[in-house]
Design a protein around this nucleic acid. Structure first.
Lengths: 189, 189, 189, 189
DNA sequence: TATGAATGAGCATTCATTCAT
DNA sequence: TATGAATGAATGCTCATTCAT
């Protein structure tokens, strides 16, 4: 394995600490220790705790957005899209359950810039999905539903999945998502 | 306007301050100033900052849960239910926009008791809605969809509405909700 | 039993609370509750917490000083004096063990006036005891020891008794006092 | 003068402030100012105000206990022991007058561990002194007095000395101690 | 006279940030 | 470049005291 740059080492540590404890309960000292560097070193690479948090969030969010983009891009049918989507939801949650809590709870600490970036990324996703749905509609795979609205409905499945898994602690989340897909397919096809 | 009790004045101020700035950034001093009372006075009525937050959250949540219960209880058809639901979403958001952010973000600061209460209230809502859907299914108003899953799908509309209105700042939220209802109706009827 | 005056009721409550918990840990509210009066009422009779403490201490100290004066005054022989003295020590400690802790620990909170008064009372005791010892010396009951020094030695037995009983928790305190008396008698007679 | 370590500077300042004002009236800010460091710096070296107090007390007490142990250990006769003891009392008081007040008054704020340690040290002193007295008794230097009781009587001279010097402000304390020794010698030899 | 609701000064403690080395 | 000792602003909470009723 190649040597990581200091900057990356710190980001990795920030990732681990922030997503374990949340923004307020994480201290710069904790992150420095986790990274195996001095507290001062962090300020050589990041101007503040908030900037470190913001960059960490951006890297995590990029990863998630890319995963979802892939699914949208490669789907050849509405069924494939919905199933790929729900599978990815379950996978993300199982892998990153603890992290997702923080992703949704500490949004207030990210910079205005990142807030806009997040919003834009989500809108890009929405645009891509809308466009894909339009293809399905024009190729008669789908009813003539309003594609923008349908796109939001689909993206919103992520929120339901997270809520059921993490808050309600519902074991049958997967079944429920599958069933929701059936309803949507009935409604859309 | 009639005289409010100190306790109510403080709760109102807590409501305004917490929901404006979030739990961590709100200070007891801020709330005291907003209420127009001394810092010590707050501790005459609430044993800690956390208890004040918890009580404020409970009162807001009660109000929202009751509104939604009403809709589920009084709906005579699936159309009425979905439309009532989406209208109420829009209304709640327009009325309480600022509050809903915090309602979802600072859950970690409420007491374990309130956390359980919130979860239970939501599950009660789910149970009530599931039961209503079963009626619709047995009276052939609806297809034989899995009612528990459909219930979560419907409840999850709240989350989409909040997200579109507050985060994405989407003006056409109302239209999108309406369209989502059409899809669900197609899928369920 | 006759009705106590408010002032006395409060002093009695202060006695109970202060001697139970010490000055700093006792609150005016506690004392008011113990007295069964309102917090404000205390300030009708005492100008501050410190004054209340001072007056309470003075009344307790008066009681102890009087007890000891009695012994000195009525003793007809050096043996009687020493034995009366040690018995009274044990008695006071057994009766008021808890209180004596505070009597010695919170002296910093009493007014300068009471500090002087306490010192004067002790010096009066010393003077009385010195005078008694001089009688014993002139009547050849005692060796020609320096009476002032012997008086301090005797008064100091109280401190030893308190220390052994309360700090060291020595069960044989009584025996040790008795033995000390023997030594002093040997030395003095 | 050589450079002191921060830790020692803070302990020295704590010593001065605590022993001047007592535990409750001393503030961490005062100690920081006295030490010429920031408030936060104190918490780099001591985990709390109580720990700082406890460590300060232990260092002072160690010093006193060691001084007294020396005297007991090196005394070859009962006269030498008593005289050494009383001289050391006077010396300690002149050197550490202010400190001794607090040493006896704020014991409630030291950790349970230190409380036990103090009691044990005193009991060790008592044991050592008792053992020495037994030697003197078996070598016929002393009458057959109960050595344990005599040991407490001697140790208690410290308390008398402190009281006379600090509370009564008696100038002739030294004379009185000397005279007490005579009485004890008469009584014991 | 008696009250207790209201107050705010005061405290211990935390932690992001700085800067001399 | 890397460090971590030093800092002090900021905060939740307590409680003696006041004062309107």
């Amino acid at each position: 394995m190649r040597a990581m740059k200091k900057c990356e080492i710190i980001l990795k540590a920030a990732n681990e600490v922030f997503l374990e404890s949340g923004y307020e309960k994480s201290t710069v000292k904790d992150i420095a220790m986790q990274a195996g560097v001095g507290k001062g070193t962090i300020y050589e690479y990041f101007s503040s705790k908030e900037e470190l948090f913001t960059q960490m969030m951006q890297s995590v969010a990029s990863y998630v957005f890319n995963d979802i983009k892939e699914i949208i891009f490669h789907a050849d049918s509405i069924e494939e899209l919905l199933e790929g989507f729900s599978k990815k939801c379950i996978l993300l949650i199982d892998e990153h359950a603890d992290k997702l809590q923080v992703l949704t709870q500490d949004l207030e600490h990210i910079s205005k810039d990142l807030q806009k970036w997040l919003m834009n990324e989500e809108i890009k996703l929405h645009v891509a999905l809308t466009s894909k749905l339009k293809q399905f509609i024009s190729s008669k795979q789908m009813k003539n539903v309003q594609p923008e609205s349908a796109a939001w409905t689909i993206l919103n499945m992520v929120r339901l999945a997270v809520h059921l898994k993490l808050i309600i602690n519902e074991k049958r989340t997967e079944d429920f998502l599958r069933e929701q897909i059936h309803i949507l397919l009935y409604g859309m096809k």
